[in-house]
């Protein structure tokens, strides 16, 4: 339990760092560290596949994409953030947490879940046989993403030709 609390604290602190740090590269690295904590939490909760995906894809690939974007937009990238927002964050955060703890304590007992038989068997079988439609959706979304990126960059090259 203590390890879980430490991991959760690390996750929250590095996410806050990712949001509040001024340097964009440092923010991207903090986001990758947050993903790492989340992946370890997934492993500890008995979800190794999701953990491996989280660490390899989110901490790896997305960080690389962020770095690439930061490098490509380097010259105009320094935007002045409002200082008030950074200073006021801890106050808002503490108030939100206090309200949230109060509300969650009252509501947590009333939360019900839909009746479902506990999933048994191997993960691959559950993914292929029970969630087949999700896989179709994943393929569709990957195609949509690829087409969107292609369309965005092609439009730009046409603009420069003109």
């Amino acid at each position: 339990m203590t390890v879980q609390i430490l991991l959760l604290a690390g996750l929250i602190l590095s996410s806050i760092a990712a949001v509040l740090v001024k340097d964009l590269i440092k923010a991207a690295v903090a986001l990758a560290v947050a993903s790492l904590f989340l992946g370890i939490l997934f492993f500890r909760m008995g979800a190794p596949y999701a953990g491996a995906f989280e660490i390899s894809v989110v901490a790896g690939l997305i960080t690389v994409l962020f770095m690439l974007t930061i490098a490509l937009t380097k010259t105009g990238g320094d935007v002045a953030e409002s200082k008030l927002a950074t200073i006021a964050f801890p106050l808002f955060f503490v108030v939100f947490l206090a309200v949230d703890i109060l509300v969650t304590r009252g509501l947590i007992k009333k939360l019900t879940t839909l009746p479902a038989e506990p999933a048994a068997g191997v993960f691959g079988e559950v993914l292929w046989k029970q969630r087949t439609f999700d896989l179709v959706g994943q393929v569709a979304i990957i195609f949509a993403g690829v087409l969107a990126v292609l369309a965005l960059f092609r439009k730009r090259s046409k603009d420069t030709d003109d």
Partner: peptide, 25 residues
């Protein structure tokens, strides 16, 4: 029901990657 949750989380991660690629473009 961690197995189903894991399937959903992986679907979500795939959606997230697609979203990130499009948004950064």
């Amino acid at each position: 029901s961690i197995l189903v949750a894991q399937g959903l989380a992986i679907t979500f991660i795939v959606v997230e990657v697609s979203l990130v690629a499009t948004a950064l473009a």
